[in-house]
């Protein structure tokens, strides 16, 4: 199925999605990858305010290339998500709605997403120029010393993602492969 997800984002809307669905996102989301996740979770542990409201947020795991003059951002495809696995359950428990990245997640992340009604979506790794064109504005809001890894507030239009972990326990990486192999087996009969 194909869906459009627009602000204001809510957990209710996520319940419709199933693993394998394609969703185009329009609205304000945040970028954070390895170093930013480490700092954000440290701030939370110390009782400090994180750079953006975690509850209700969509976080895109990306470290873009520098923006050329006249562009809001450079190339902006997803980075591999498992490196955020150590930090993600904490943020999901605080109400994060969606993680966007690519690649497998740990059982702990899958469980945290499921108990909180959050989803994990994959953007296409290595299609960074396509994704860059969906970013209409970008602003560094925290950790500018981290360069590409700084936290940015970005406004995206029709950002294409595929649901990997849905709110019903579905997992595209398991189901997609199994379905394809079942079809191959069927054809061989």
């Amino acid at each position: 199925m194909e869906y459009i997800l627009k602000e204001p984002f809510s957990k209710e809307a996520l319940r419709e999605f199933r693993a394998g669905d394609q969703v185009r996102i329009t609205g304000t989301i945040y970028t954070a990858r390895d170093a930013a996740h480490k700092r954000i979770t440290e701030m939370i542990a110390k009782g400090e305010e994180p750079p953006f409201e975690i509850e209700g947020s969509i976080i895109y795991y990306v470290g873009p290339t520098p923006a050329k003059p006249g562009n809001p951002i450079g190339s902006a495809g997803p980075t591999t998500s498992y490196r955020m696995d150590a930090y993600a359950p904490k943020l999901l428990d605080l109400g994060q709605l969606m993680m966007i990245g690519k690649g497998q997640r740990s059982p702990e992340v899958a469980e945290a997403a499921l108990r909180n009604g959050a989803v994990y979506a994959a953007a296409i790794g290595g299609a960074a120029a396509v994704m860059a064109r969906c970013v209409k504005s970008a602003e560094v809001i925290a950790f500018p010393d981290l360069g590409a890894e700084a936290v940015r507030r970005i406004y995206v239009e029709d950002l294409p993602v595929t649901i990997v972990l849905d709110t019903h326990g579905g997992n595209l990486y398991e189901e997609g492969r199994a379905a394809y192999l079942a079809q191959v087996k069927e054809e061989a009969k």
Partner: peptide, 26 residues
């Protein structure tokens, strides 16, 4: 789903060749 991904990858290659955006952010 596989065909859809490969089509987007081809689109990405075409955009990157214009010189404004690198193929991948990494």
């Amino acid at each position: 789903p596989a065909k859809a991904v490969l089509d987007i990858i081809e689109e990405n290659i075409a955009i990157a060749e214009e010189g404004e955006f690198p193929l991948c952010q990494d």
